[in-house]
């Protein structure tokens, strides 16, 4: 019974982690940017959706779309206001660009969370769920919302796979993540690919944030742990490897759930971090990493 419980509960949270980490790893793969404002953008999505319901009085679907839209804008702002100016700045030596971008996105994330706390307080918010009620899965009383979360995550990941593997521009993105120079030689504008990738990222982070807001609820305090978990998943799976991130999301998600059930919910994040340290020692490129 406990095993089934863990199996069912771990699945949804892992799917959510997978979705959140996918965009994060895509950006790294294509442009070498580690976006440390990731958690803040997810929180932004959930709080925007919450505000849409409670301040603008719209329904659950519109609120979710609003949350995703705001995050898309947030992702573009991250790219155009923070990342791109730092990357193209002549004042910053080339070899230090990455560390500047890292710090820049970290500060940007802090600004977003502080603004959210200022305008909407730091108390947790929850997004109006699209589906409510519970169903019985293998004898486990499961919120329909949890199942909905898992399904949406996998549908979105599936769509992403189709876009990346079957469309021309998607293939260009994939190629850029493997060899940016090769892609430019083939006549693709790299800067356009960057914009496309940040758009994809914004939508993915938005969906993940809104779903998290429906499933568990978020507050401005959640931003740090969310960035942290995306980071561990992505490093564990191998930076830049989407399939690695998906596998790693499930490893981390289940590890956390098992810990929460078998030991204590207070320790749920610890084993995954220990695993991360071990992986760094014996396989620094991650489970499926290329570099």
């Amino acid at each position: 019974m406990l095993a089934l419980q863990i199996l069912v509960d771990g699945f949804a949270i892992s799917a959510l982690y997978a979705l959140g980490a996918t965009g994060f790893t895509l950006i790294f793969g294509v442009s070498g940017v580690l976006n440390l404002s990731h958690g803040s953008l997810m929180v932004l999505a959930a709080v925007a959706a919450w505000a849409a319901t409670n301040e603008l009085h719209v329904g659950a679907y519109l609120a979710a779309l609003f949350g995703i839209g705001v995050t898309l804008i947030g992702a573009f702002a991250t790219y155009f206001v923070v990342v791109r100016p730092l990357q193209t700045s002549r004042a910053i030596p080339k070899e230090e660009t990455e560390i500047f971008v890292l710090t820049g996105t970290l500060l940007w994330g802090t600004m977003i969370t502080e603004l959210i706390a200022y305008f909407f307080t730091d108390n947790a918010k929850t997004v109006l769920p699209i589906v409510e009620g519970v169903v019985n899965v293998f004898g486990v009383r499961t919120p329909q919302n949890e199942i909905f979360t898992a399904i949406v995550c996998w549908v979105v990941i599936g769509l992403l796979w189709l876009i990346v593997n079957k469309t021309r521009s998607g293939k260009a993105v994939l190629a850029a993540s493997m060899n940016p120079r090769g892609v430019t030689l083939l006549g693709f504008e790299l800067s356009r690919i960057y914009v496309a990738i940040w758009a994809i990222y914004g939508v993915l982070a938005g969906i993940a944030g809104v779903l998290l807001g429906m499933f568990l609820g978020v507050s401005s305090y959640s931003a740090g742990p969310l960035t942290g978990s995306a980071f561990s998943i992505v490093v564990l799976g191998g930076l830049g490897s989407v399939s690695g991130s998906l596998v790693a999301a499930y490893v981390v998600g289940y590890l956390e759930t098992v810990t929460a059930y078998m030991i204590s919910p207070a320790y749920r994040f610890i084993p995954a971090l220990l695993l991360l340290v071990v992986v760094m020692y014996i396989r620094p490129q991650g489970l499926f990493g290329r570099r």
């Binding site: 108390n123 947790a124 918010k125 929850t126 769920p129 409510e132 009620g133 519970v134 009383r141 919120p143 919302n145 949890e146 499933f215 568990l216 609820g217 507050s219």
Partner: peptide, 14 residues
């Protein structure tokens, strides 16, 4: 310090 999240999950998990 907590309040919203346990309450929402209490309801969603019935």
């Amino acid at each position: 310090h907590i309040g919203v999240q346990p309450t929402v999950q209490w309801k969603s998990q019935q």
